[in-house]
Computed example of a mutant assay.
Amino acid sequence: MAGVRARGEEIRRYILDHVEKSPGDVTKATAERFGITRQAVNKHFRRLQADGVLRRSGNTRASVYRLAPQSQWSHACEIEPGLAEDVVWRRDVRAVLGDLPNNVLEIWHYGFTEMFNNAIDHSDGSLIGLQIKKTVATTEMLISDDGYGIFRKVQAAMGLLDERHSILELSKGKLTTDPTRHTGEGIFFTSRMFDLFDILSGNVYFSHKFADAQDWILEPARTSSGTSVWMKLNNHTARTAKRIFDEFSSEDDYEFSKTVVPARMAQYGEDKLISRSQARRLLARVELFKTVLFDFSEVETIGRAFADEIFRVFALQHPDIELLPIHANSETRRMIARAQHGSQGQ
């Protein structure tokens, strides 16, 4: 009997972990995973619904299950002298998150304090709103302010082309408009710790998914004032903050020495990556790192001048920096190899 109970718990845990990833076919996936019938899977769904863990929408044939919120909390903080992220964490947020594993709480501690402090120091706003929603499987947090907007502020401070260009720079890390108080590491590491990390500000929506090579830039239907940061994390993830720090740090001195540069963010519309100017835009500030991974996901091809500027000209000027292309198709790899072998003239 104990074995049957344990198997049932395993099936229900699988459902809870996967229902939000693929709500339309989780029944089929569960049946195949455990070698049981769809009818047997539906019994587990009904039990989870009776326990208040899942909610069902739609009719019988097209019903969809989603995780039911177990708790929801919201709070507003006026941005005024004395407001401190560690106090808000200790006084309010930590208690709302509740009983979570230490590694999960460590990630939330880092992500919340970094993003909340950004709103205090950089938003030029008057109010910060907090929202937290918990289910049995995941926790979501929204931090929003009524300030100037992070992408617009970076664009103005650095004289960039537009708000999309701000995301390219933020995605590299080590970018801050206030170097006396910030290292520029917060958004980079936070975006890589959480299952989902989104920023909505002005005319741009940025999204990063853990273990996904791609960052998404979208233009929403309407402009958003201020900045909204949304983070989501599985309550039982085995991930640790240290693992993420180590992935992008030197082994000897723990320096933030490695970054990933999404090449597709230098594209605008249907433009191809062909010019030296586009390459120089991609190369901005990468001399701050020892290892630079150029991610060519969703890049169909690159031009000779573009490849030459990065993998020959810049490489010769910075022999101490390791430049590594990743997720490049065969055509892109061929152009990079040509540049590395010095075939393209100046």
Rank of each mutant, 00 (worst) to 15 (best):
E10R: 12
E10Y: 00
I11M: 02
R12F: 03
I15E: 06
E20G: 03
S22G: 08
G24L: 13
D25M: 11
K28Y: 11
A29Q: 10
G35W: 06
Q39C: 01
K43G: 04
R46Q: 14
R47Y: 15
A50C: 00
G52E: 03
L54E: 04
A62I: 00
S63I: 01
V64W: 00
S71F: 13
Q72P: 02
Q72G: 02
I79H: 11
P81D: 09
V87A: 11
V88W: 10
R91H: 02
N103G: 01
V104C: 01
H109W: 11
E114K: 04
M115L: 13
I120G: 06
D121F: 07
S123M: 06
T135G: 05
A137Y: 01
T139K: 05
D146C: 01
D146K: 03
G149S: 10
R152G: 05
K153A: 14
K153F: 07
E163H: 04
S166Q: 02
L168W: 05
L170R: 03
K174N: 07
L175V: 12
D178L: 10
T180D: 15
G186I: 01
F194D: 03
F194C: 10
N203A: 14
V204P: 04
H208I: 01
D215V: 13
L218G: 06
R222W: 07
S228Q: 15
K232F: 05
L233M: 12
L233A: 06
N235Y: 02
K242M: 12
D246L: 14
E247L: 12
D252L: 12
Q267F: 06
G269V: 04
R276H: 09
S277A: 08
R281N: 15
K290H: 09
K290P: 00
F294L: 02
D295R: 08
V299D: 03
E300N: 11
G303T: 04
R304C: 10
A305T: 05
A307M: 07
L316D: 14
M335F: 12
I336Y: 11
R338K: 14
A339R: 11
G345V: 04
